[in-house]
Design a protein around this nucleic acid. Structure first.
Lengths: 229, 229
DNA sequence: CGGATACTTGACAAAGTTCAATCGCAGTGG
DNA sequence: CCACTGCGATTGAACTTTGTCAAGTATCCG
């Protein structure tokens, strides 16, 4: 379900992911030992729909996306926020079991699933890196399950803010690309509880909220304590 | 952290896992194209501890195990119940990020992680199957995250019972090898809520509980409705 | 039979949700 | 430039669900 078109602009990685770093180029981008196709999506666009055939593997170049699963009565669970360097589309089955949507303007590179598997068959390093990406996603998902099942609202928000700070490489300032509703659906809370808990952390002096999308961490130690325990 | 000893008894698979079926033998068992070592653990034994170095990959031959993560105040999240045919120990990092404990007497086969990766390097099919196992775990974990984040107590219990029925290949009778506490920690509930919800489903005529560990599904359709929506 | 363990039940408390109203800010048009 | 509009975020109050604590029952096993 590709509704956007590929841009012709060069793409610059703003984060290298260990051994799997990728190099900017004019039209194509190296990715899993293959020539990936750069694509651009607008804020709100759907890159992958739930139940779509799983034909491609993607890496985020810039921007943020969310993976969503839906339940009846409009209940939604966001599995992960995908940022520069993150991969998605590696499915065990032939169809995607969640949708992927652009939260901001989004640049990705795409390779076909069959080409990736073929490359993995030829090149052991590619196979290993394909496994590594999947295993890392699994690790993140298991960590997230612990949060969803056993943490309180404050601990969830604390963990979330710590995670975002770490992923943005900043110790004390975070720009949140996602709405309160997205945060709520990621943490298994309601938008109101997210809002209230943020205010509560602000009142306690743990964070400051110059704007609703910009968080300043005043007491990182306090946040760590919340997220770890 | 292997506290039990390997048995010398032959091991019989009571479930083949698609293309990755494994064949019983007197002492060693084929597993990911390697010769696996059969091990036996007693009920309650810890096969893997949290933060243990990840040196082996396992497949369950018979019995049931649980994967656990711990938080402070004794809060626990069970990530999965592992039954015959299931794999565990495939970690992205060098240490296990959860413990694995035997719920019943447990037979597993074990191969060393490095041997598995070496085999994957030599044999494309092994590499693919290693990826497949990991991707399947990821899929299950994402499904479980949806349950933990967005389902009510009844829906959680409904989903759990449906899952168990399916895994036991039975449409209407389930033997639960795990305690109410295990179920609670799997579903992100308390033991009391699990108990109450089971009774509630029994009163509604959806299930019967001849004993606390044996569930008869009287209205499978009703359970489906709960778990899907 | 006695003791331990697991499960169930009840009464109450707390955390989080729901519903509704309000605020604040960016964008738009007069 | 300022009022108006729309949307996201915040706040309040009532309510629900689930958790907590405590007691009671069932079951297993020596």
């Amino acid at each position: 379900m590709l509704t956007s078109v590929a841009t012709t602009r060069g793409i610059v990685s703003n984060r290298t992911d260990g051994a799997r770093g990728f190099v900017p180029s004019a039209r194509h981008t190296s990715f899993l030992g293959l020539t990936g196709i750069p694509l651009h999506f607008e804020r709100g666009a759907e890159i992958v729909a739930e139940e779509d055939p799983a034909e491609h593997i993607y890496q985020v170049v810039s921007g943020t996306a969310r993976t969503c699963k839906l339940l009846c009565n409009g209940r939604r669970q966001i599995g992960a926020f995908l940022m520069a360097g993150d991969y998605f589309g590696m499915e065990a089955r032939d169809t995607h079991c969640f949708a992927v949507e652009a939260i901001t303007d989004l640049h990705v590179v795409m390779v076909s699933r069959s080409a990736a598997f073929a490359a993995a068959g030829r090149d052991t390093a590619v196979a290993r890196s394909l496994w590594d990406i999947t295993a890392r996603s699994l690790d993140a998902c298991q960590q997230h399950a612990l949060l969803l099942g056993r943490k309180t609202a404050v601990e969830k928000i604390g963990s979330f803010l710590s995670e975002m700070a770490e992923r943005q490489g900043s110790d004390d300032e975070i720009d949140l690309p996602m709405s309160r509703q997205d945060i709520a659906d990621y943490l298994g809370l309601t938008i109101e509880t997210v809002s209230r808990t943020m205010t509560q952390l602000e009142s306690a002096g743990t964070i400051a909220l110059p704007t609703s999308r910009h968080v300043v961490i005043k007491r990182p130690h306090e946040l760590e304590r919340l997220s770890l325990c």
